[in-house]
Design a protein around this nucleic acid. Structure first.
Lengths: 163, 163
DNA sequence: TTTTTCGTTCAATACAAATTGAACGTTGTG
DNA sequence: CACAACGTTCAATTTGTATTGAACGAAAAA
């Protein structure tokens, strides 16, 4: 490694790989890493120049990162461009990103569980049914884990990190 | 919903959607959900019949789920097929899956951080350099979060859930 | 032995999502 | 006014990866 620029590029690449494996694209990670390691606020054109991404992609990525609190828009007098600097509260950022990504799907799964348990209760009057009993066990097990996970998510320990 | 089979199918679909948005394919979620909700151990052929997936895909998905402890191979006398039943320790499963997926990438990022800090220290002798100082701050910030995250990951609260 | 029944592999394919870039609306500028 | 400098949008394209299916090897059955 010869210059600070080399370090930056390696971090940008690493962050890109990370967000890639996480299912977000490469640009998200690269753009955030670049701005996080830049002393000065960066404009869209800075991004398209430093990283090699299209302006459209930069615009969309920046907006998403902004929604997660990962970037903040900065006013710079004398220029009518939008500049961005990095938010550094990783915990809050991660929390918002997770909610944004799996939130809807998870909630829909929760709803299905509720619905299924109601349906099951309505059918548990008559003669004993092994199949219904088995499903009932599974749903109970799901509920227990869901409850524990919910509790953990709201626990002080987690809140301290993801605050 | 008219029968237990309908419920199963809806859960299979929901699980497929969930693993899809998580970046794993649909099959992983569908296969696990199907076996989780099946009173009897299931063979590869059962899977290709119930869900509509190829045998190759079922074989690979089952192996991955097995590595995460999400499925256990069961011997059934009289048949030379492999049968599987569901592991129900979600916490352990999730933990293993996370390590398996982001582990390598995260470790490589850790290594880069170590490497960069060493490099930075070597250059911090001479005259004060604002650029180096800024990078130093960022690395320090990264280290702090990394340390907190590491601590949380190994905390009793988390271990209780992901055990 | 030959034949069938398994599970596995991997190159080809299909699919979903990320990325592009041209066209557009808006707002400042000369 | 016309023109330039922005950021945004979205259909088209590219990219990454999940999924397929034919070919294969192993092991039991006939």
């Amino acid at each position: 490694m010869n210059s600070t620029q080399d370090i930056r590029e390696r971090f940008v690449a690493a962050a890109g790989d990370l967000t890639q494996t996480l299912g977000l694209g490469r640009n998200i990670g690269q753009i955030y890493a670049h701005i996080y390691l830049s002393p000065n606020p960066q404009s869209l054109d800075d991004l398209t120049a430093s990283l090699e991404v299209s302006k459209g992609s930069a615009s969309m990525s920046v907006r998403q990162l902004e929604q997660w609190g990962a970037l903040k828009k900065i006013w710079v007098k004398g220029s009518r461009k939008d500049f961005y600097e990095a938010g550094i509260e990783f915990g809050r950022i991660i929390r918002r990103a997770m909610i944004d990504m799996v939130g809807r799907t998870a909630e829909s799964a929760d709803g299905l569980l509720d619905e299924s348990e109601v349906w099951l209760k309505q059918r548990q009057n008559g003669k004993p049914n092994p199949d219904l009993a088995f499903l009932n066990d599974r749903f109970k097990h799901l509920r227990e884990f869901h409850s524990r996970a919910q509790g953990l998510w709201n626990s002080p320990v987690i809140r301290r990190l993801l605050k």
